[in-house]
Computed example of a mutant assay.
Amino acid sequence: MRLEFCGLPSADVEMIHRTGVDSYGDPVERHASAEQDGMPCRHCLQNVPERLPFLALAHRPFQGRNPFTETGPIYLCDPGCTRAEPSPEPPAFMSATQYLLRGYGPDERIVYGTGAVTPRANLTSYAASLLERDDIAFVDLRSASNNCFLCRIYRAD
């Protein structure tokens, strides 16, 4: 099975830049990047280049709302950037040894038993095993240490 690791949709990111508010309706924070790369943008799936500005905000990467539509902190390039092309490989900015993968149904609800802290080397195989199931519509990739949303994984058409 071919996977697609996908950044946030451009329409969602453009709305954040246009309105300046996060998923709670609070103002986004604007920061200057440190002298080294390190703030991973969830749209271009690259680290914000050193000394360039970025946004920090609470984001809920779901269309609807239910008890399972989690909100968490993310970073975005500021000004905006170009969305990463869907890739069969995890984003290059990922450097931790393990990550949290969790499967969701078409109703955007967590499918119980799918959440697992997964070694980086096993991300693709575990995501593929989840997406082979008929009850899984997508898989979210999150930080295992902070639960931050990193990207979404789909079956490639």
Rank of each mutant, 00 (worst) to 15 (best):
E4K: 09
L8H: 10
V13D: 05
M15G: 10
G20D: 11
G25P: 09
V28C: 06
A34P: 12
M39D: 11
C44Y: 02
L45K: 04
Q46E: 11
E50C: 12
L55I: 01
L55C: 02
L55M: 00
L57P: 02
H59N: 00
H59F: 04
R60L: 00
P61K: 00
F62Q: 02
R65L: 04
R65G: 00
F68C: 08
F68H: 02
T71E: 05
P73G: 04
I74D: 00
L76H: 05
D78R: 02
G80D: 01
T82V: 12
P86M: 03
P88I: 03
A92I: 12
F93S: 10
S95I: 14
S95W: 15
A96G: 12
T97Y: 15
Q98R: 15
L100E: 15
R102W: 15
G105M: 11
P106Y: 15
D107I: 07
R109D: 14
Y112I: 12
T118N: 07
P119F: 12
R120E: 14
T124H: 13
T124C: 13
A127D: 10
A137H: 10
A137P: 05
D140A: 10
R142T: 06
R142C: 02
S143T: 06
A144Y: 01
L150G: 08
C151N: 08
R152F: 05
I153Y: 00
